[in-house]
C-alpha cells in the first residue's frame, strides 16, 4: 500500500431535479413520450450510423435506464433493424443492463460532457448486469457526440437545428482548448 495516497473532497455531483418536480410529474401519462422517444432514437440511428459499429453484437441487448429523479424509466433496445425505446413506470425484470443515475448525469454521460467512470467513482451512477454491453454502449455514445437538444429540436427542421445551436451557445460548455503547435515529424 502506498502511504502517499491522499483522499480528496468529493466533487459536486450532477444536478438533481427537486423532489417536488419529480412528484409533480408522477401522475403524468407516459403515452405522449413514446412517439418522441421513437423519433429521437430513429434520428440517432440515421445521423450516427457509426454507433452501431461500436455496439457490435451488443446492439441486440436490452438496456434499462432509470433516472433517479424521474418518476419513470426507459427501456432501450438499439437493434439496427428495429430500434425501440419506451418509457415505463418501473424497469421490468429480464433486462441485460440496468443503469441508474440522475437525469442530468445520464444525459451528460450520453453526450460525452461528463465522464461515466467519474460518475461511478462518486456513486452517483450505478450499473447492474452485462458490463460488456454497458461499456460498448458508453463508448459508442461517447464517440457519437450526441446533442440531445439538437436531436429533439431537429425534429422541427432547420429552424429547430438553428435554435438548438443558439441554446447550446447560451448554455455555454467546455470551450475548445489551444491546439498544440507540435514539433517536427519524427519519421
Amino acid at each position: 500500500m502506498l502511504n502517499s495516497a491522499t483522499p480528496n473532497a468529493a466533487p459536486s455531483g450532477p444536478l438533481v431535479l427537486p423532489p417536488w418536480l419529480t412528484r409533480a410529474m408522477t401522475p403524468l401519462p407516459l403515452g405522449p413520450l413514446q412517439p418522441l422517444l421513437a423519433l429521437t432514437l430513429s434520428r440517432i440511428g440515421r445521423l450516427h450510423p457509426e454507433l452501431y459499429g461500436r455496439l457490435g453484437e451488443h446492439a441486440e441487448k436490452s438496456f434499462g435506464i432509470a433516472p433517479t429523479d424521474l418518476p419513470f424509466a426507459f427501456v432501450l433496445e438499439p437493434r439496427p433493424e428495429r430500434p425501440q425505446a419506451r418509457a415505463v413506470r418501473e424497469l421490468p425484470p429480464g433486462l441485460d443492463v440496468r443503469i441508474r443515475g440522475s437525469l442530468s448525469g445520464l444525459i451528460g454521460m450520453a453526450e460525452g460532457r461528463i465522464d461515466g467512470d467519474a460518475l461511478f467513482f462518486s456513486r452517483t451512477l450505478s450499473i447492474e448486469g452485462d458490463m460488456e454491453a454497458t461499456l460498448a454502449l458508453r463508448n459508442a455514445l461517447d464517440d457519437a457526440r450526441l446533442d440531445f437538444g439538437t436531436l429533439l429540436l431537429g425534429c422541427l427542421g432547420p429552424l429547430g437545428t438553428r435554435l438548438a445551436e443558439i441554446l447550446r451557445r447560451q448554455a455555454g460548455g467546455v470551450p475548445p482548448g489551444p491546439v498544440a503547435s507540435g514539433g517536427p515529424s519524427w519519421n
Binding site: L2, S4, T6, N8, P11, A118, F121, S122
Partner: peptide, 12 residues
C-alpha cells in the same frame, strides 16, 4: 480528484 479512482490521488 473527481476524475480519479476512489476520488483519491497519489504520487505513487
Amino acid at each position: 480528484a473527481a476524475m480519479s479512482e476512489g476520488q483519491a490521488n497519489t504520487v505513487g
